[in-house]
Computed example of a mutant assay.
Amino acid sequence: MSNDWIDVRHSAKYQIETIQAHFEGHAYDAHWHDSYLVGLTRQGTQQFHCRRHKITSQPGDIFLLEPGEIHDGDAPTAGGFTYQTFYLSPAWLDSQMRQLFHDTPSSYQLSFAKTLNNDRPLARQIANAFQSVHFGELTMVQQSALDNLLASLAVHSHWRARVDNARLPLASAHRAREVIHSQFNEDLSLQDLANAVQTDRFSLTRAFKKAFGIAPHAYLIQLRLAQARIRLAHGERPAQVAAELGFADQSHLGRWFRRAYRLSPAQYRQICTNLPD
Rank of each mutant, 00 (worst) to 15 (best):
I62P: 10
K54S: 12
A239C: 05
L122M: 15
H181T: 03
S111M: 04
D29S: 11
R167Q: 15
W159R: 08
Q58C: 06
T199D: 08
Q47V: 04
A233T: 07
H252V: 05
V155M: 12
C50F: 00
G60N: 10
Q47H: 00
A129E: 12
L153I: 09
L253M: 04
R262L: 01
R255V: 03
H217G: 00
Q109E: 13
I126P: 05
A260K: 03
W159A: 08
Y108F: 11
A145H: 04
S35R: 13
L225W: 08
P76T: 01
S251Q: 14
T45N: 01
Y36F: 15
R167V: 07
S132Q: 14
R177H: 04
D164M: 05
R175W: 02
V133P: 05
F257H: 13
Q58W: 07
S89M: 12
V38F: 03
A248Q: 14
S152Q: 14
R160V: 15
D103R: 15
L64Q: 10
M1W: 06
F101T: 09
K114S: 11
H31S: 03
A151N: 14
P105G: 09
A218N: 10
T199Q: 05
P169H: 07
S172M: 11
T77Q: 14
E17W: 11
G246K: 12
L225D: 07
T104C: 10
V241N: 02
A129V: 11
E186R: 10
E17G: 10
P265L: 05
I19R: 10
G25Y: 03
D200Q: 11
E186D: 04
L232D: 08
S106D: 15
P265D: 08
R51Q: 15
Y108S: 02
T199N: 07
V163P: 00
R162Y: 00
R167L: 15
Q15V: 00
H49I: 11
E236W: 06
H71T: 07
L110K: 13
F208K: 02
I16Y: 02
R98M: 11
D61Q: 14
I55C: 00
S182Q: 15
H156C: 13
